[in-house]
């Protein structure tokens, strides 16, 4: 990473048209603005709080979401409280298969996911579910994206984690096209 940074700094300097004037009367050798490499790393104790049942569901290979106990609004991504009436929601298991509502193929991305490119992001819809679920699609040709993918029937899958792993992420969920029998 440091090397990459140094290369970037050199590039910035080469391009920099505006240089802050260094004081001439102090016998400094003239030079461009000063930059330093300064890494920064943080470890978080991240909690899922009221959404924890969703993540427990993933650990048990079940995709859970919530529905409002008062107005009946059904969420494809869980919310512990309803965004329309404020009431508490109840947990339920989403169907194993849904349909692609929209998608993209990412050829670039955030640092953490660059090595996974190209990858496909999708929103999944289910009948009688009012909102969507954001996930990845595997098992189709990333080189030939097509609007016809919208409406494709997809099946939920779960990534395997080592047995004793305590970690869990929404990224453990992904979808594949439903194989026609």
């Amino acid at each position: 990473m440091k090397k990459e940074f140094e290369a970037l700094m050199q590039k910035i300097l080469a391009k920099s048209g505006i240089n802050w004037p260094f004081p001439e009367n102090l016998d400094f050798k003239g030079m461009p603005p000063i930059m330093v490499h300064d890494p920064y790393r943080i470890d978080y104790i991240h909690g899922f709080g009221q959404d924890s049942p969703f993540f427990l569901g993933i650990k048990n290979k079940r995709l859970l979401s919530t529905k409002c106990s008062s107005c009946g609004y059904v969420y494809g991504t869980p919310r512990a409280h309803c965004m329309y009436c404020g009431s508490e929601c109840q947990w339920f298991e989403l169907p194993k298969t849904g349909k692609i509502h929209t998608f993209t193929v990412c050829h670039s991305g955030s640092e953490a996911f660059l090595k996974e490119t190209p990858f496909i992001l999708i929103s999944v819809e289910w009948e009688r579910v009012n909102t969507l679920f954001f996930s990845r699609l595997k098992g189709v040709d990333v080189k030939n994206p097509s609007l016809d993918w919208i409406g494709m029937e997809v099946e939920v899958k779960f990534k395997k984690r080592p047995k004793n792993s305590k970690n869990v992420s929404v990224a453990d969920v992904y979808f594949v096209p439903v194989r026609k029998q």
Binding site: T104, G109, F113, F119, I122, R136
Partner: peptide
């Protein structure tokens, strides 16, 4: 965590 980045989100919106 799914691999979100903003160009991807906007791409999904315009695909729809």
């Amino acid at each position: 965590p799914v691999g979100g980045f903003y160009s991807g989100y906007y791409a999904m919106m315009v695909v729809r």
